[in-house]
Design a protein around this nucleic acid. Structure first.
Lengths: 338, 338
DNA sequence: CGTTAGCACTCTCGTAGGTCGAGTGCTAAC
DNA sequence: GTTAGCACTCGACCTACGAGAGTGCTAACG
């Protein structure tokens, strides 16, 4: 536990560093904040803070930089969590009102808003249920032996696939078949659908299995259809000025493998969790932080939204904004799908 | 028109520069290719080539670098266009065989293959018709007053939208309605659908208009759903080593506004066109080249595939590979959708 | 006349040295 | 406990300099 004054010094170091991105020195700190203390005193406090691991030296004669532990302490104990300013709220609301009723559109929009607001990167995943369930199927004839299979899931996701049919079928045949399967499979899970496919005719069985597999794949994907926005914001941060650093980060994100870099921590109903630098098991993320939230009702499908940036992240604003945007998304989802 | 020998010198300069990315000097060139001439002679030829604008000096004492005009001459007159090597063909075919029958999947795959093969960036757009036409609609009830509208277009694209219904309707109502609209609107364009919506009941009209708008938006988009792959390849090229250059390029691509950067040139049936550096009207692309091809049958929906990289692009291989992958895609499309 | 050897010149790049300024840590005094 | 004073450290920036690559020019050669 830090003494009051020491904590304040830490707070100022973190705040200044987040703002300026340059190591902060003892004299700077007293000047900027008109402290009643001399730089020497601050230096003493800094020495203690460093001893305890909250800050560190890039090299002998540079100012101090918060360590991951320092950021953690800041987030946990020092930061006052602001509400999103009214201006900002209006700006965001305004953008949300332009959202169409297409799921992907507004996921994209949310990511975009977050990224812009925080001048960092944002990731938003599509909603996902604990277990996805079948809702509706439709078969559209393409040729006498091929058809487009369109599956709608309970979470209002639409999946599609072209099937080479085992036997020829007209659109009428397919219409009848769809109706039968819709009736038979309503609200079933992928596994259940597959296990019941044996009792059907060969063609029906083929289609049932295809449907079952589609429904099942949804269960495997952790963060479905992640929308990524604002990579450029992150890359233009000074910590990535060196181009090799840039490439490292891009490597981590390029391959749609963001899922790996975002730990599947449990986020409570309205909670937002913060993962700082080395707290992330993934190596490439060791100098990045993540502010992770969720949207969607307590039960039913829910999704993830996150802000990703260098550890020098404006945590307070990020947390508030993630929470705010999350709540807007929840609201919108309720309105549209429930 | 260049003399035979001068053209050969140009050819070597372009080839070497594409390979090594460093300005090529007169002595280097004779050594590497065991020419029977002295460096001095080459220098004379180089001076002429520079005078005529085919190559240039970065500074007084560096080797020569091809200009856009030089690349153009190379592509037009000097390059022997290789077939894709058999190894490469096999590698690509192998990857194509893993494609699922989902349109987006294999667009993605194609982009990925191109990017990997050429170690540059690839863009592949979804197929698009001159005018898109309605094929099938399905309404899935979500609530008594909201429904998911799923529209299938003739090009086997699926579009979706959540609708707040003007009046309450059960799934049965919606099923009947879908069947009616399917019958009524088969193979119509968006405009036609909208113009016929007046004769319908209010609810039907609402839905018809929504469908019409969905179909119409397809006509506006130039390169629908572009799949972008291999940004990292391009960014790790030495010409983008400086991080500000990287950001410039990312800016050009990040915002899904690739369409602007790729001129909508007419690409013939089996043709591949090459856009070199400043030939592109878009400023940001002034030190990039594009090798642009198309896939799809002569009539009916067709799409675009392209390789994008620095002007120092392996043109010969790029053209061959774009052509090859394009033909595979055409084939696959015929098989699946026709 | 085309080709070539010779040579002075130019420009980049890497290295080494030198100064400046910001910041630290320590000591001693208040 | 706080502070002034001070020596010290180290990166950032500038300059100088030599090495290396490459050029352009001139004059000689076949």
């Amino acid at each position: 536990m830090l003494t009051e004054r020491r904590a304040q010094v830490l707070r100022l170091i973190v705040a200044d560093y987040i703002e300026t991105a340059t190591p902060v020195g003892s004299e700077q700190i007293v000047k900027r904040h008109r402290l009643e203390l001399s730089p020497a005193t601050i230096r003493n406090e800094m020495a203690k803070l460093e001893e305890e691991g909250y800050i560190s030296h890039p090299h002998t004669s540079a100012g101090r930089v918060p360590s991951d532990l320092g950021y953690r302490y800041f987030v946990e104990m020092l930061m006052e969590e602001p509400n999103v300013s009214t201006d900002e709220q209006l700006r965001i609301l305004h953008q949300f009102h332009q959202a169409t009723s297409e799921l992907n559109d507004w996921l994209h929009l949310s990511a975009s808003v977050l990224a812009q607001s925080l001048r960092n990167m944002a990731v938003v995943s599509a909603p996902r249920s604990a277990q996805s369930r079948f809702k509706h199927v439709e078969l559209v004839s393409l040729h006498d032996r091929s058809a487009l299979l369109v599956v709608v899931l309970q979470e209002v996701k639409v999946r599609q696939q072209v099937l080479a049919l085992r036997e020829a079928a007209t659109q009428d045949d397919l219409g009848r078949l769809s109706r039968k399967l819709n009736h038979l499979f309503a609200t079933l899970s992928g596994g259940q659908i597959i296990s019941r496919s044996g009792e059907l005719s060969p063609l029906e069985e083929q289609i049932a299995i295809a449907i079952g597999e589609i429904v099942q794949t949804e269960d495997v994907v952790e963060f479905p259809d992640p929308h990524l926005e604002g990579i450029r914001n992150v890359l233009s941060q000074p910590e990535f000025a060196r181009s090799d650093r840039m490439l490292d980060i891009l490597e981590a994100l390029d391959g749609r493998n963001i899922a790996r870099t975002i730990p599947q921590a449990q986020v409570g109903e309205d909670g937002v969790i913060v993962i700082i630098g080395t707290e992330n098991p993934e190596n490439v993320m060791h100098n990045c932080s993540i502010v992770l939230g969720r949207y969607g009702g307590a039960s039913g499908p829910s999704g993830m939204l996150a802000v990703v940036g260098p550890t020098r992240l404006p945590y307070a604003k990020a947390i508030a904004t993630v929470r705010y945007v999350g709540s807007l998304m929840t609201e919108l989802m309720m309105k549209l799908y429930d």
